[in-house]
Simulated assay, not measured.
Amino acid sequence: MVVSGLSHLRVRVALDVRPVQTRRERRAFLALPYRLYRGTPWVAPLRRDQRALLNPRKNPFFEHGTLTPFLAWRDGRVVGRVAAITNGRYNERHSDGAAFFGFFDVEDDREAAVALLDTAREHLAAGGYARVRGPFSPSFHDVAALLVDGFDRRPALMMPYNPEYLVGHVEAAGFETILTLSSYHAAWKHLDRQRLARGAALVRQRHPGLRLRAADPGLWRQEALVIRDLYARAFDDTPHWVPLSDAEFDHMERGMREVLDPRLVLILEDDGEPVGFFLALPDANEVLQHNPSGRLFPGAISLMLRAKLAPPRTFRTILLGVLPEVRRRGYETILIHELIERGRLAGYPASELGWVMDTNATLTHAIEKFGGVRDKRYAVVERSAT
């Protein structure tokens, strides 16, 4: 982790917020959510993966970004954590003076929560930033946003979870919502599949050059590059979005291989040219939820057996998009229809779609029109750095 030389901030006699500097403090920063959220719907990620996420030698985010972690101590015990984050690629693309906070987890202790966010904000203000936005841990492409509705249900793979009290603590620190997002649950037996099939057939009649194909596992590297190009172009106008660097894309693609099901990766072509895609992954959280420690050992053998005997029954649609120049032609309907049918035939009875920005009226309308149900809601928040 990249640690600044900021001196510690004494808030009250019993509360101390200071930057992470020692190996013991780094371990405490990593370990906090495993203790804090045990027994909640939160699903513990593998500690191995979290260590890699925070390691500048293993995470290419640190080629252009920095992360300064802080811990809140009360009477010698860690009660909260936060990270102040800068993103050089974001600053190259946007000129709004924004920096970020993430990895924000704290006990139900408003004083500690506000002190942590104030410390991160003041640190970023000292670096010349005008706005603080989050949570991003550490970027838009990782676990992002604040859960604001749906606290009683476990998160899907790579989706955030936080207790309800955290929302009030964030608001008490002066942050306001600037973007809302939703995730949707789509159970095939509850969807209007006939209506969806008719809609997809109508779009195909209007555009006979359309062809939807599954990614070829034997040519996965080439297929991944096609998806990368579609992702960059389809999401280019998304608020706060930054395209992945070459190294970040390679890093993400390698990580996805561990859980990839090629049947859930589709590319839509129009007269031979890629114009849309969807990328979904089996919801590994169905398996990981049985390993609350997040440790590979002794939980690894149990997880492997469970994954083999009872593999995930749902998948999470990570990305679904079409190029801006072909939007409003109904291509999303074809993608959603194929997502449902191919997922059903592959043995997945349901999917989580999300998150989806609430401003994406075309996609939210299509999902709700055919029977998708909003399951959880999220927010991105922001405040002045001063």
Results as ranks from 00 to 15, higher is better:
131 R>S: 02
375 D>F: 12
200 A>P: 05
244 L>E: 08
327 R>P: 01
375 D>A: 15
31 A>I: 00
113 A>F: 02
266 L>E: 11
248 E>Q: 13
327 R>Q: 15
10 R>C: 02
158 M>P: 00
114 V>H: 01
92 E>T: 10
51 R>N: 01
6 L>G: 10
136 F>W: 14
15 L>A: 05
349 P>I: 11
21 Q>K: 11
242 V>H: 00
321 G>T: 07
225 L>K: 13
173 A>D: 10
18 R>K: 14
290 H>L: 00
266 L>C: 08
217 P>G: 04
10 R>G: 05
138 P>Y: 08
38 R>N: 09
94 H>F: 13
228 R>Y: 09
245 S>V: 08
296 L>E: 07
171 E>C: 05
142 D>A: 09
341 E>Q: 13
265 V>A: 14
110 R>F: 00
346 A>Y: 08
151 F>W: 05
23 R>G: 10
263 R>Q: 13
197 A>C: 01
283 D>T: 09
128 G>A: 02
74 R>F: 06
362 T>I: 13
297 F>C: 03
373 V>Q: 15
110 R>M: 08
298 P>V: 09
371 G>S: 12
14 A>D: 15
338 E>S: 14
152 D>F: 03
55 N>E: 12
127 G>T: 01
64 H>K: 10
276 G>K: 02
136 F>S: 00
67 L>T: 01
168 G>D: 12
